[in-house]
Design a protein around this nucleic acid. Structure first.
Length: 433
RNA sequence: UCCCGAGUAGCUCAGCUGGUAGAGCAGCCGGCUGUUAACCGGCGGGUCGCAGGUUCGAGUCCUGCCUCGGGAGCCA
């Protein structure tokens, strides 16, 4: 295969030897005897300039045939040019069409979201979607580095499962040989609790599935979640870990994805403020605060979207709300010894209206109380035998949380809908492409 | 499941109290030596979501259905 160059390396080749670039045509412009081709190759953007008098008739003819998304090979020399958005331009000496493109559906004009998502496989090529994909990549790499640096061990939990994670919620069911119905995982948490007793500090990171018929900008039926679990961490230590974790992710994106955030026209000032300590407020205090702000929120109800938004608006960085009423939370959360109406849990609400990005808790480590809660929720006791075993053989204080990757990416990118934060979103009405 | 909203050209939309279907962009043809969603001139382009009803006449009014979007609930 002949050698060619990536656009990202061209600034180092200004004034140098001839280079060859392969990529896709975004737009073309011409003024009769001079022609411009805006190119994308995945590593960057480049404008190639062709002068009719300096290129072969074949190359000039090829320019005339260029349409949006034609794949091409352009040969030329790199020149610094203040007029070029990227600082450099390619003075082309040759242009060859590699793959024609007829009637590309996404024009450089306005489109509605329904149309764009029907063409998601092509929409991914747009500058904006490329920028989002790169931020998502950075978020995920930051997550892995954070845990690696702190000696957490990655444990992959099953996606197909016989027992069910949390109480209600709708699960996707699939046929599983002679063993009947299996369900797609909606959390890896129960498994990661088992692994914490083996490895101390662990996390799982994978796709998770919720069959709820949610139709909001914050929900997907398939999304990615990272769930750390730490032996000997109480709820307080859990919140400190969350704070450190989120600060790490945001700082990393600011440091390494500035170009992409600028491309997305993200105001980074609110992100610069994401530094410890995050405000913490108990559920009970939050209810009082909301009431004072005019909400009709009553103690005992879970915080709804409106309440979360109103509360989060009171702070300039993520806020942690802790110790919710036991009745509205999952069976595995540890009862608060100081106030038995509540559990030792917390949510983290992102600012700027992005809502809940983390849900976490200290886990119930008392065998009898956990069993009582399983019965109270009328869960199938036999399915939780192995989970109860963890309290039977050397029970231990432990805590963990789940962070939603798409919600985090949407917040950092400042994009209005979570669906743009994943390459191929799965929603109630979208299984294709 | 419930509550709102929208379906008209490839795309984004306009179309008033019912009277021969419109614009911008995209596409095609032509022009222009520095364009950045280039610009200028010309050309083609329609089962008005589907079915029924009212009417001399329905994109427009009525009924039902379908599809999609936003929100609620649930949650990351």
């Amino acid at each position: 295969m002949p050698e060619f160059h990536r656009i990202e390396e061209l600034p180092q080749r200004v004034g140098g030897e001839t280079v060859v670039v392969r990529g896709w045509v975004m737009t073309t412009r011409s003024s009769g005897k001079i022609a411009f081709v805006a190119l994308r190759d995945g590593t960057g953007y480049l404008q190639a300039v062709l002068s009719k008098k300096d290129v072969s008739a074949a190359a000039w003819d090829a320019f005339g045939k260029l349409t949006q998304e034609t794949s091409v090979e352009v040969t030329g020399t790199v020149r610094a040019d203040a007029r070029a958005p990227g600082g450099v331009e390619l003075t082309a000496s040759d242009l060859v069409i590699l793959g024609p493109s007829v009637d590309f559906p996404i024009t450089p004009k306005e489109h509605g979201t329904a149309f764009l998502f029907e063409h998601r496989h092509l929409w991914l090529r747009s500058r904006r979607q490329v920028a989002i994909a790169r931020v998502r990549h950075e978020v995920i790499q930051a997550i892995r580095d954070f845990f690696y640096e702190r000696h957490f061990v990655l444990v992959d939990t099953p996606i197909l499962t016989g027992s069910i994670g949390e109480a209600a919620g709708h699960l996707f069911a699939v046929e599983y040989f002679d063993l009947g119905t299996a369900y797609l995982a909606q959390t890896g948490q129960l498994y990661v609790e088992a692994a914490a007793a083996a490895l101390g500090k662990v996390y799982c990171f994978g796709p998770t599935f919720r069959a709820e018929k949610s139709k909001t900008r914050r929900h997907l039926t398939e999304f990615w979640m990272v769930e750390p679990e730490v032996a000997w961490n109480d709820s307080d230590a859990n919140m400190r870990l969350q704070e450190e974790f989120v600060c790490y992710i945001v700082a990393r994106c600011l440091e390494r994805r500035n170009t992409e955030l600028a491309e997305l026209e993200r105001d980074t000032a609110p992100l610069e403020r994401v530094r410890p300590p995050f405000p913490r407020i108990s559920y009970t205090d939050a209810v009082a605060k909301l009431t004072a702000l005019g909400s009709d929120m009553a103690w005992g109800r879970d915080l709804g979207g409106d309440e979360e938004t109103l509360l989060a608006r009171q702070y300039d960085r993520p806020v942690m709300v802790f110790n919710y009423p036991r009745a509205v939370k999952a069976f595995y959360m540890k009862e608060n010894p100081a106030d038995r109406r509540t559990v030792l849990n917390n949510d983290m609400l992102a600012p700027e209206g992005y809502g809940e990005i983390i849900g976490g808790s200290q886990r119930e480590d008392d065998y009898d109380r956990l069993l009582a809660r399983i019965r109270e929720e009328q869960l199938p006791e036999e399915a939780y035998g192995w989970y109860l075993d963890l309290r039977k053989y050397g029970t231990f204080v432990h805590s963990g949380f789940g962070l939603g990757v798409e919600r985090t990416v949407a917040w950092i990118c400042g994009i209005p809908h979570i669906r743009e934060a994943i390459a191929f979103p799965r929603t109630l009405y979208k299984l294709w492409p």
